[in-house]
Design a protein around this nucleic acid. Sequence first.
DNA 1: GTAAGTTTACCGTCCGGACGGTATTGTCAA
DNA 2: TTGACAATACCGTCCGGACGGTAAACTTAC
Lengths: 180, 180
Amino acid sequence: MRQEKISTRQKLLRAAEELAAETGAGHLSLEAVAARAGVSKGGLLYHFRSKAELLEAMVADYMERAAAMLGEPGRSARPDGVLSAYLDIVEDECRRHPDPPAGLLAALAEDPGMLDPLRRWERDFLARIRANASDPALAALAFLAMHGLRNMRLLNIDAVDDATRAEVLAWLRARLAPQG
Amino acid sequence: MRQEKISTRQKLLRAAEELAAETGAGHLSLEAVAARAGVSKGGLLYHFRSKAELLEAMVADYMERAAAMLGEPGRSARPDGVLSAYLDIVEDECRRHPDPPAGLLAALAEDPGMLDPLRRWERDFLARIRANASDPALAALAFLAMHGLRNMRLLNIDAVDDATRAEVLAWLRARLAPQG
DNA sequence: GTAAGTTTACCGTCCGGACGGTATTGTCAA
DNA sequence: TTGACAATACCGTCCGGACGGTAAACTTAC
C-alpha cells in the first residue's frame, strides 16, 4: 500500500541522518541504517539501489525541506522580501535543529560531486535575493552571514550563542526595507 | 636526519590533503596517501601511528597555518584591529586557495569530535574580535560572513564570485574604525 | 652497533552489493 | 468468484575487495 511504502523510505532517510550524526559521516553503513530503520539490508536496497542513491536522496530531502520553508510567503514580492524570509528561516532552523545536517556531510564525504544540485540552488538563490534587495552589498553580506550560521551547525561549532545570533539578526533586520 | 624526517611528515600531510580533495573526504586511505607521498604504508605508520593521528595532525596543521597568519600584526591593539586583520586573511585565503580545506572534511567524516580543538579556537577568536570591536553586533556579523565565505570553500559552492566578495569586504571595511 | 627510518608481507574485519528467496497485495480473464 | 499470474515490499546469505593495523626484516647515518 502506497502509505506504507513512503513511510519505510522516510524511516530509512531519518535513520541514515541520525546515524551519520552519531557515528561520523564517513562511517555510514547500509547495514546499520537498515537495522536502525527496522529493515533488512535487502529491504534498504530495494528502496535505494545503491549507497550513492541513498545519499543523493538525503541531499534532495534536505533541499526539499528548505524549498518548502521558502515557498509559502507572498512576501517575496516586496523589497528585501526574499532576504527577510531567509533570515526567518535560518533563525528558525538554528532554534529547532541545533544538530548538524549530517546527511550533507555524509554525501560530501562519499563524493563531493553529490552536492552539485545544492550548489546550483545556492547560486540561484543569491541572485534572487540580490535582485530583490534594496542594498545588494548588504544583501550579499547577510547571505554570507546566514551561511556562517549554517556553517556553525555543520561543523557543530558553538562560537555564536543564542543572544549573539539574535543581536546579529536584529541588526540586519533594522537595515532592511520596512516590512520587507 | 631531522630535516628528512620533517620533510617526509610534511609530504604525507600534503599528500593526504590533496587526496582528500580529489577522492572525497570519506575515501582517504592510508595506502593511497603513502603512495602519493612516495612512501610505503609502513613508512606512513611510522610517522602517524594510526589514521586518527594523521587526521588530527591535519587539523592541527590547518590551525597552525591560520594562527600564523593572524600572529604577526601589531594592529590587534587598535580598535577593530583583530577583525580587520581577519578580513584580510580570509580574503587572501579565498584568492590563493580556492580549493576546499579537505583535511577538515576528512577529519569530520572520520570523527566529529576531532574538530573540538578548532571549535574552542573559533569560540575564543570571536570573543577576541568582539572585545576589540567598535560595534559588537557588526563584529559578530562580519565574523559570520567570513565563516560564510569559508563555508563556500568548504562545500565548494561558487555562489559568491570575486566581484561580490570584494563588494562585501569593502562594505564592511568602510564601517570599521578608521585605520583599524 | 645501534637507533631512526623504511620496506615487505600478512592478517582480520568491515562493508557494498548481488542474489535467491518469501509473503502479501493487486489485476484480470474465464 | 476464482484461479492464474504478476508486481510490490521485504528478508537473509554470501562474496570479494578495500582498508586499518601489525610484525619482522632491511638500510642508512652516526
